[in-house]
């Protein structure tokens, strides 16, 4: 912390941490050069903080659970299918959907940096970006899954998908038992963010 709050009043404004000042400097310079519009940056932040998140991916998954034709199309060409739902990869990346079954559990990582299906899941959680996850999940995926309290039967194979700047993966978790008759909205509530990364399972009702 740059200051201790507890024992004195501030005569001056609280000094932000050094990286915050450096990003302000970059923004000021680029604004002065006419290269950026600060209001547009606020729109991007608002979009990722409030409008884009795992609910998007959950809608895709719930629809795939309900509609076999939709699921087949999704597995065949996820980029086009989710674009029709209004979820675009703003960086031009392709989306690939991979389906969990009794025989195969899929899990997603980005070993290079933190590539992630932003339009479907929003901004990745801290652990997804950590060295510990990025290195370990490739080496020992079952141990990483155990850390997330996911224990799979021995006969279930685990496949790790390494995202890139061009290709982002969405896991379609297995539909939980006891969900016959639930509609899309009710199913969406069972689809967690982690279940679409592969570090969790869908909730049961």
């Amino acid at each position: 912390m740059p200051h201790d709050h507890s024992d004195h009043d501030h005569a001056h404004s609280l000094l932000p941490p050094d990286p915050a000042l450096r990003i302000k400097a970059l923004e000021t310079l680029l604004t002065q050069k006419g290269l950026i519009d600060p209001a547009a940056l606020d729109v991007i932040i608002d979009t990722y903080e409030n409008k884009i998140g795992p609910r998007n991916g959950a809608q895709v998954v719930a629809r795939a659970w309900l509609d076999p034709e939709f699921k087949a199309a999704l597995l065949n060409d996820a980029t086009s299918v989710v674009a029709e739902m209004g979820f675009y990869g703003r960086q031009g990346e392709h989306m690939v959907a991979v389906e969990n079954t009794d025989d195969l559990h899929n899990i997603v990582v980005c070993t290079l940096c933190s590539c992630y299906p932003w339009p479907l899941l929003g901004i990745p959680p801290g652990w997804y970006k950590s060295d510990a996850y990025r290195a370990r999940v490739v080496r020992e995926p079952r141990k990483v899954l155990a850390d997330f309290d996911v224990v799979l039967p021995d006969e279930t194979a685990v496949r790790v998908w390494d995202s890139t700047a061009e290709v982002r993966y969405l896991v379609i978790p297995q539909r939980p038992a006891g969900t016959d008759g639930l509609d899309e909205a009710a199913l969406m509530d069972l689809v967690t963010r982690d279940s679409m990364i592969g570090t969790g399972l869908a909730n049961t009702p």
């Binding site: 932000p16 941490p17 990286p19 915050a20 990003i23 302000k24 970059l26 923004e27 680029l30 950026i36 547009a40 940056l41 606020d42 991007i44 932040i45 990722y48 903080e49 998140g53 703003r90 960086q91 929003g122 901004i123 801290g126």
Partner: peptide, 16 residues
């Protein structure tokens, strides 16, 4: 979504 405001700012600037 972002732990600190400057995380959001550097992210948004890069995306922009």
């Amino acid at each position: 979504v972002f732990e600190a405001p400057w995380h959001a700012q550097v992210f948004a600037l890069t995306v922009y």
